[in-house]
Computed example of a mutant assay.
Amino acid sequence: MQIKPAQVKELRDRTGAGMMDCKNALVETGGDIDAASDVLRKAGQAKADRKASRIAAEGQVLVASDRDSGRHVLLEVNSETDFVAKDENFREFTALVGQTVLEHVPGSVEELMELDAGGPTMGESRQALVTKVGENIIVRRFSVLASEDTVGFYVHLDRIGVLVELDGGSEELARDLAMHVAATSPRYVSVDDVPQDEIARETDILSAQAAQMAKSEQILEKIVSGRLRKHFDEITLTGQPFVKDTDTKVGQLLSRNGARVKRFLRFEVGEGIEKKQAGFGEEVAALL
């Protein structure tokens, strides 16, 4: 039977699939748009399944906030290439994920994928995007910070996102500290937050290093103490020099403003994901 362009357009608008895929699905189903939509969804699932094993280490970090409810979401969605991460369809999907998490506060990514996204579920929307852009797309992680205190955020080039919660202080200070955390990546707020086993391990290492010096026991203790203090200053937010004024430590800045950092969250695109390193020949072959 003859398939009209209007039918193809309607199916394409409904599914987001390519023109030829829509036409072929309509031919297969005798022009039945609902049945053709099911055919495309099944085909999309098959394509998504084939791409699921491919490494997705690029993508976007996003912050979504609702000041009225006091909820703030930090989110990472991954793609295989930076090219797709900049695609408008990918960015719209990421924004939709952020708003859905903000509104429904799911307990996990799996729960998120089952939520309604204005018609299809989030999982179905992800599957449709995979089919459309031709890459594996993963909602990797999200974290919800619900607070009645001061919260500031900063996103750097869509690749690093930070939320900082303050007791006291101002939104401007919270944002400056979020920018600082994005730049320096501290592991803890203060020394009080460092686990005891990590303190013990670092002390043992530094003591073993100092023991090789021909110094008195008293001097060695001072050396270990000084190195330990320097190490914890480097990995704790309050011990680091403030990026906007390196003569002032963050702890001093907080005291000056009558504020305390309750917690911070930091996501960086692809951190912890082992990327596949292709040789030059493989890259050329992939391009061809």
Rank of each mutant, 00 (worst) to 15 (best):
A182V: 01
A182I: 01
A182K: 02
A182R: 00
A182W: 04
A182Y: 00
A182M: 00
T184N: 14
T184W: 10
T184E: 05
T184C: 10
T184F: 13
T184M: 15
T184I: 09
S185Y: 10
S185Q: 04
P186Y: 13
P186K: 04
P186M: 10
P186F: 05
R187I: 01
R187C: 12
Y188E: 08
Y188P: 12
Y188H: 06
Y188W: 15
Y188S: 01
V189T: 09
V189C: 12
V189I: 14
V189W: 02
V189R: 02
S190G: 13
V191N: 07
V191I: 07
V191Q: 11
D192A: 08
D192V: 00
D192S: 09
D193G: 04
D193Y: 01
D193I: 00
V194C: 02
V194Q: 06
P195Y: 03
P195Q: 15
Q196Y: 14
Q196M: 11
Q196E: 03
D197E: 06
D197Q: 15
D197K: 10
D197T: 07
D197R: 04
D197G: 07
E198C: 00
E198L: 06
E198G: 00
I199H: 05
I199T: 03
I199S: 01
I199D: 08
A200K: 10
A200L: 02
A200C: 01
R201M: 09
R201L: 12
E202H: 15
E202K: 11
E202T: 10
T203M: 14
T203N: 08
T203E: 09
I205Y: 03
I205F: 11
I205K: 00
I205R: 01
I205V: 10
L206F: 14
L206R: 07
L206G: 00
S207D: 15
A208V: 10
A208C: 09
A208I: 13
Q209E: 08
Q209R: 08
A210F: 02
A210I: 01
A210P: 06
A210N: 05
A210Y: 05
A210M: 04
A210T: 03
A211K: 13
A211R: 12
A211V: 14
Q212K: 15
Q212R: 10
Q212I: 08
M213H: 12
A214K: 10
A214V: 00
K215P: 06
K215M: 06
S216L: 14
S216P: 15
S216A: 14
S216R: 09
S216W: 02
E217W: 12
E217N: 12
E217C: 11
E217S: 11
E217H: 03
E217T: 05
Q218Y: 05
Q218H: 07
Q218K: 10
Q218V: 08
Q218L: 07
I219A: 13
I219R: 12
I219L: 05
I219G: 07
I219K: 09
I219E: 05
I219T: 13
L220R: 14
L220Q: 12
L220D: 02
L220A: 04
L220G: 06
E221K: 06
E221F: 05
E221N: 08
